[in-house]
């Protein structure tokens, strides 16, 4: 428990004493939010995971894609 507390204080004090780092953390958090909450959710679905439930279905679909010409 003592070790956990010390680790927590280490990070807590470190973040508190940051100067330029605070701006950077804002940029990092905004960036991660845009990437995961907007881009990933609305623009970048994993097509195979989203459209098929099993790996069997996914492989069947990919083989079909690879062996037939698009209409």
């Amino acid at each position: 428990m003592n070790t956990l507390k010390r680790v927590f204080r280490f990070y807590y004090d470190g973040f508190r004493s940051m100067t330029v780092g605070k701006t950077l953390w804002v940029i990092i958090l905004v960036k991660l939010f845009v990437m995961f909450a907007i881009l990933k959710v609305f623009f970048f679905p994993n097509i195979l995971k989203q459209n098929f439930r099993t790996d069997e279905e996914r492989s069947k679909y990919v083989i079909e894609q690879l062996t037939t010409k698009p209409k």
Binding site: G21, L24, W25, I27, I28, K31, L32, M35, L39, K40, F43, F44, P45, N46, I47, L48, K49, V62, Q65, L66
Partner: peptide, 21 residues
Amino acid sequence: FAIGVATGIILEFEFGTNWSN
């Protein structure tokens, strides 16, 4: 490091959406 971190993750998003085959 801070600005660049996670920019590579976008490439993995693209694998799943644009390059699924």
